[in-house]
Structure formats: structure tokens, C-alpha cells
């Protein structure tokens, strides 16, 4: 049993979720603060786009930007940075594909926090920064957590964009989804089956764990509270 794809997938998904979570949450917060409706809707649509496009389109666009013979790719190549056909590319693919899930979940989580809490916090003198970290984020936490699970699982299962920019290099960029596909196509269905089972198990563990955590917090907060819900 070749464990490399499992390790690569887990490494890729773990690193990419950290990046995705930070950027997704931060951008969701910024977008929520935009006053002008038209501007907000436009930016929101752009950030949601990778969600509805096929991953191969995202991969294609990434290549268009970072490909070795494209301006940016060449520029990066000058300073010795390569982001195609290596492990970093798998992370980039996972981040781009899973980002909209995180972003939309974070936005929804922020929106459902009653603005009255932020108002109360302002009247007792809390700075905007303290409000974000001590009021907004903790109250949005369940939504952020579920966004994180979604994004992590999506990153784990990423295939189309990864194949395009990271390649299918066994032991380097061959993630579990790529390994499954190559195995099926190469007639090694037993091998594919093993990866499929692992993938399902890992995803299930994460979904269960975070579901459990968020439910406990929700029960503690929500029972009998008097603040109005939208």
C-alpha cells in the first residue's frame, strides 16, 4: 500500500485550510463592511466565482497567471520561485478551489450575528479591533467552524485544478484524488478502493469532530436567550 498520496493529501489540505481560513474570514469581514450595495455585490460575485466554475477552469486561469512562460510566472522564476508542478502548486489549487466555501460561510456567519452586540460594544467603549476579536469572531465561531470543515474537505478532494498546475507526480504531487483516478485508469481498482475508503474515513472524522464541538457551544449560548433573532 502506497501511503504517499495519503500523506500528500493531508499535508496539502492542512496547509491550505490555514491559508483559506485566514484569507476567507478576513475578506468576508471586509466585504461585510462595504457600504455601497453595488460595490459589495460585485466583489462578492468575483470571490464566489470559483465555486460555480469547473475546477479545470480555475486551474486553467491559475496556469494563465502563474505558468512558466507567462509574465508573472517568468518573473517569479527569476527570483527562483516556482509554483507549478510542485507540492506548493497543490496547496494553491486547494486554496483557490476551497476559498469560496470558506468565504461564503464566514460571510453568512458574520451576517447572522445580531448587530446589536456590536452596537452595545461600541457604547461601552470597545475599539473596533477588540469588537472583532472578542465579540464578532466568538459569536460567529460555529459558522466559521463549519465553513472550515467544508473548505478542508473540499481541499482534500480537489482534483481538476491540481492536475493542471501541480501535475500528477507520484510521491510529490499525486494527491489521493489523483491517485484514485490514475489507479482506476491503470486497472488497479483494489488500490483505488483503498484510497477511497481512507478519504471517506478522514472526511467523516473531521465532520463529526467539528460538528460535535459547534453543537456544544451553540446549546450553551442559545438556550433561552432574549436577544432578538432576525
Amino acid at each position: 500500500m502506497e501511503w504517499a498520496p495519503v500523506i500528500i493529501s493531508l499535508k496539502t489540505a492542512s496547509v491550505s485550510i490555514l491559508i483559506t481560513f485566514a484569507i476567507g474570514t478576513w475578506l468576508a469581514y471586509l466585504v461585510c463592511r462595504i457600504r455601497k450595495d453595488s460595490v459589495r455585490s460585485t466583489i462578492d460575485a468575483i470571490l464566489t466565482l470559483p465555486l460555480v466554475l469547473p475546477p479545470t477552469v480555475a486551474g486553467f486561469l491559475l496556469l494563465y497567471i502563474f505558468g512558466s512562460y507567462r509574465p508573472l510566472g517568468e518573473l517569479l522564476g527569476e527570483i527562483g520561485v516556482r509554483i507549478v508542478f510542485n507540492w506548493q502548486a497543490t496547496v494553491i489549487a486547494a486554496v483557490v478551489i476551497s476559498f469560496p466555501l470558506m468565504y461564503r460561510s464566514a460571510k453568512a456567519a458574520f451576517v447572522q450575528v445580531d448587530p446589536i452586540f456590536m452596537q452595545a460594544a461600541r457604547t461601552i467603549g470597545l475599539s473596533e479591533r477588540r469588537i472583532v476579536f472578542r465579540i464578532l469572531l466568538p459569536l460567529a465561531a460555529p459558522g466559521l467552524a463549519s465553513g472550515g470543515i467544508l473548505a478542508f474537505s473540499r481541499g482534500l478532494g480537489e482534483f481538476g485544478a491540481t492536475a493542471l498546475i501541480a501535475g500528477n507526480i507520484p510521491g510529490v504531487t499525486r494527491t489521493m484524488p489523483l491517485a484514485i483516478y490514475s489507479a482506476v485508469v491503470g486497472g488497479r481498482t483494489e488500490e483505488a478502493y483503498r484510497y477511497v475508503v481512507i478519504l471517506i474515513l478522514v472526511s467523516f472524522i473531521f465532520v463529526w469532530l467539528l460538528s460535535f464541538l459547534t453543537d456544544r457551544r451553540t446549546t450553551r449560548q442559545r438556550s433561552g436567550e432574549r436577544t432578538p433573532r432576525l
Binding site: F117, Q119, A120, R122, T123, R134, P138, T227, P228
Partner: peptide, 29 residues
């Protein structure tokens, strides 16, 4: 800014932070 006005506001629904204890609600102010 509201933070600097020195004006306290008592909300009809109290607006107590649901994720904080009594002590923390008061303490943070």
C-alpha cells in the same frame, strides 16, 4: 465615534454578550 462619546446605552433587550459570563460582560467594559 461612539466609543469616544462617553455615552452609555441601555438596550431594551439588554444586549448582554451571550458567549460571556456575567463577570466577563462587566469586565470587558
Amino acid at each position: 465615534k461612539p466609543q469616544r462619546r462617553g455615552v452609555g446605552y441601555f438596550f431594551q433587550s439588554y444586549a448582554l454578550f451571550p458567549h460571556m459570563t456575567v463577570q466577563e460582560n462587566i469586565g470587558i467594559a
